[in-house]
Design a protein around this nucleic acid. Structure first.
Lengths: 214, 214
DNA sequence: ACCTGAACACCGTTCAAGT
DNA sequence: ACCTGAACACCGTTCAAGT
C-alpha cells in the first residue's frame, strides 16, 4: 500500500540530515560560528524544524560529537587490525592515527572535546559511551603490551591516559597555531613526541623502539 | 591644576576594568556564555562603551587571554626559583604547576587556547608573545637539564613540546570531564603521567626520578 | 506527527548624537 | 575624547497554528 518510502513529511531522515549538515559546515567553519538556523536553512526547512528531533542546539551538537567519536574509534581500531605485531609499535601507530584524525577534522574534533558545553551538563549517556569506546582501543593496546611484557606494569589506565593526554594536547596545540616549530610537519613532530613517551612506558629501559633517531 | 586623577569620564581605567570584569565572569561562566554587553552591564556603562577601548569582542578576549598567559608564566617561573636543584625534578614541578593553573581557572584557560578564535585571524602579536614567554620557561628548563646531562640531547623544542602537549592534554581532558579514573585526584594523576614522560626524556635510562612508584 | 510563521529576549556591531 | 540611545541583522527558543 505504501510504495513511497515512509518519509516523515519532507525529508528521508531529517535527524541524520541535520547531523550530516552540521558536520559538513564544520569543515569550513568554527564551532562558535555554527548556528542552528543556518543548519536548517542549508536543508531548506524552517528554523524551527530541528526542534522536532533535538530538544536543544546542544542536543544536536552532542549528536555531532558522538558521531565524531565513532569516527575516531574506527580510525584507531583500524590500526590494531593492520599491525597487531609489536605492541609498542602498535601503541605509537594508534597515537599517530589519533593525531591524524584530529588534524583532518579540526572543528569537529574541537566540538567533540566540549568547547561548547554550556547547558550540556546532562549525562549524555551515548556521547560518553562513544568516547569510552575510542578510549577502549587505547586501553586494550596497553593491556596487551603489558601482557607481552613490553609495556611497564603500572595501572593500565594511567598508562593509557598518559598517551591520550599527549596526543590530545599535541592536536589541540596544533589547531590553535601554538606549535613553536614551523620547520617540521605535524606528523614528524607527532612521531617524535610519541616516541619520547613510549620510551618512558617501556618495561625494560633500553632503546626506543621505532624511528631512526639520528 | 588637576587635583582629581585624570580619569577618562566615568572610570579610572575602563580598558583594564573590562578585562578584569571578563576574567571575573569567567570564574563562574563558560567562555561561550560570556557576552560583551554583559561585561559592560557589570561595570555600569553602556553596551557600547567597550568599543572605545577594543575594536571587537575578539580584541577584548585576546587581551583576556594575554593576561592569562602572563599568569601562567608567573606560576611556571615561580617554580624555577624555588627549586633549581635537580633539573628533572624541576621539569616535573613545572608541569605540575601548569596543570594546577589550568584547574584553578578552567574557563580562562580554555579561552587562552583559542576555543573562540572566530575573527581573530590577525596575528595578535602581544598574545603570541605572552604565550611564547610561558613556553620559554619550559624550554629553558629543558636546556638546563640537557646541559647538566640529565635530559636527553635531542632538539630541546621537541622535548619541551612533548611536555607541553602532555600537561595541556591532561588539563583539557580533565576540564571536559573525560578522565576515566574517578578514584584518584588530578594531582595524583598528573604526577604519575609526568613521571612516565620524564622517564622517557632522561639521558640515561635507569629509574624514574621522583615519586614512590610502589 | 511533523512542519510553519510570528513573536520574544538576547546578541555583536554601527551610527548619529550628546557633553 | 569619551560615552549614550536608537537601530540593524542575527541568534536560540517558545507558541499557536496549519496539514
Amino acid at each position: 500500500m505504501v510504495s513511497e518510502e515512509q518519509k516523515p513529511y519532507h525529508h528521508g531522515d531529517l535527524r541524520q540530515q541535520l547531523i550530516d549538515a552540521a558536520i559538513a559546515l564544520l569543515q569550513s567553519e568554527e564551532v562558535s560560528q555554527l548556528s542552528l538556523r543556518q543548519v536548517a536553512r542549508q536543508l531548506g526547512v524552517s528554523h524551527n524544524a530541528p526542534y522536532r528531533h533535538f530538544a536543544d542546539k546542544d542536543a544536536l551538537l552532542a549528536a555531532v560529537a558522538e558521531q565524531g567519536f565513532q569516527g575516531l574509534y574506527e580510525a584507531m581500531a583500524a590500526v590494531t587490525e593492520v599491525m597487531p605485531a609489536d605492541p609498542a609499535r602498535q601503541l605509537q601507530a594508534i597515537g599517530m592515527a589519533y593525531v591524524e584524525f584530529a588534524l583532518a577534522h579540526p572543528a569537529h574534533y574541537r566540538l567533540m572535546f566540549g568547547a561548547y558545553r554550556p547547558t550540556t551538563c546532562s549525562p549524555e549517556a551515548e556521547l560518553l559511551q562513544a568516547a569510552g569506546q575510542a578510549y577502549g582501543v587505547l586501553l586494550n593496546s596497553v593491556i596487551q603490551g603489558q601482557q607481552a611484557g613490553v609495556i611497564r606494569g603500572d595501572d593500565p589506565n594511567q598508562v593509557a591516559l598518559s598517551a591520550w593526554s599527549l596526543v590530545h594536547g599535541l592536536a589541540m596545540l596544533w589547531m590553535d597555531g601554538q606549535l613553536p616549530m614551523p620547520g617540521q610537519s605535524v606528523t614528524q613532530i607527532a612521531e617524535c613526541v610519541t616516541r619520547f613517551l613510549l620510551q618512558g612506558l617501556l618495561a625494560d629501559q633500553r632503546t626506543a623502539t621505532s624511528g631512526g633517531n639520528r
